[in-house]
Each structure stands twice: as C-alpha cells, then as structure tokens.
Amino acid sequence: MSEVKQRWRLVFARDEEARYLSHLDAVRLWERAFRRGEIPVATSEGFTPRSRLIFAAPLQLGMLAEHELADLFLAERLTAPDLRDRLAAGMPRGYRVVDLHDVWVGAPAIAPQLAAADYRMTLLNVERTALESAAATLTAAERLPRERLKEGKSIPYDLRPLLLDIRAIPPDPKAAPPEAAAAMTSVWMRLRHTQDRGSGRAEEVVAALADEMGLVASPASGGVGGEAEADETRAEIVAPAARAVIEVIRPVRERLWLVNELDSEASSGGVVG
C-alpha cells in the first residue's frame, strides 16, 4: 500500500465508443490508462494491489454519461494541468475528463454523499402527449409497486419515492434513427440515488411508463440493466408480443448529484421541476 499524497475528484463523460463496457471493464480500462499516462496512483493493499480509484456509482453497460464522478488517490502530488495531460495521454476514445478538483485527502467517501441522478433517453413508438400524461400519472401516484429481479428472485418494492421528477422533452436529435417514421420522443427524469435509501433505475421508470400507456418496454440499448438481467427480462417481454413495443435509444446519465450540490441547487431555484 502506498501513502496517499493527493486526492482528485474527476468529472468525466462516456461517449459512444465506450458505452458498452461493464463496470469491471471500465475499472480495468482506467487502470491501464493510468499506466499509459504514468500517473502515480496510490495502490491498495493486498496480494494483487489495485489502483485507488473510487467511482461514485457504477455505470450500466450501454449507458452514455455526461457528468460522472470518481475519486482518484495519488502517491505523488501533481498539478491539475499535469494530471489532465497525463490522463489525456492514456485515455482511449470514448472517455473524456470534463473537470477535476483537488479534494482534501481526508474528505468523506464519495459514494455515501450521492443523492440523485438525472437521466435522459429517447423512446421510439411513443407519442409526446401519451408520454406527458403517463408521466403525470406516475407523478400523481402515491405508490408505484414494482418487482425487481435479484439473483433470480423477484423482490417487490415501491418505485414512487425513488422518482423525484419526470417530464417529456423534445427528441434528442442525435437519437434519430434513419427510418424515423415511428413516433419518437424523449424523457428526462431525476431519480433518487443513495447508498442507504435505495436508488431508482431508469429502465424501471420506462417500464412503469409503458404499463401506463398500455405498451411494452424493450430492454434499453446495449442491454442496459446488465447483460445477464437483460437476457432474462427479454425472454419474458417477448411473450406478450401483441402490444406495441417501446424501444429505448441513447440512454444518458446526465449527471450525478451529491447531497450538498442538490441542496444548493434547490435553494437557488435550479432546474428541479
């Protein structure tokens, strides 16, 4: 184990070419990027020392991202421009470091400070008005009982408290398929994302919207929701094929919010609708 001399909070984005990575793939990719950039990363103790890079929240396979957070612990101090250069020298296409902040080494861990996450995705075969009314219904509901598959078992839970906000937005121009004849609109949502009080899943909200509209949600692009799970759910969804299928494309996690950031934004009257 090497001594930690500095801690950086990285803000990064994930684009098209890196979107189909699992969390484990992503961890390995960053470690290799650090070696290529010759970044003096502090390492953990153990038989196989790992680089000390702590992600605030794993990003699902298939999900694009615009504002992810991770803490990077260094064994030597670097200046911000130097670190930025070294990161740029080693990062493959598909990952971009948007910003970085020098954080006090003893600051609290990042994951427990998470409060919420914003998502944006495009739904094919959905009319804007239908989506608006379905979103309104979800917002008005007291409870949204749903089931989540975990290790083969179905666990009932309430989605409603995890859904902080939802609305229909104009279609993402990048998401237009070439034969975009079918109806298309985009949805934006803010979901609770916490370590101890649960986190909402975007695909669960889409499924709830689909139920509301009398449609079926196909698994989102690239098997958002994890590969194994995507396989299981797909088999179930294909069966009632009579209903129209919502196709989800370009799912984006726009931003992760820490507790204090969300508080200050709320008090200043930010985007929260």
Partner: peptide, 8 residues
C-alpha cells in the same frame, strides 16, 4: 443510430 439499434 443504425448501429445502436442493432447493438441494443
């Protein structure tokens, strides 16, 4: 978009 819809 074409690629995404297939890979999805």
């Amino acid at each position: 978009a074409t690629v995404e819809r297939v890979l999805g």
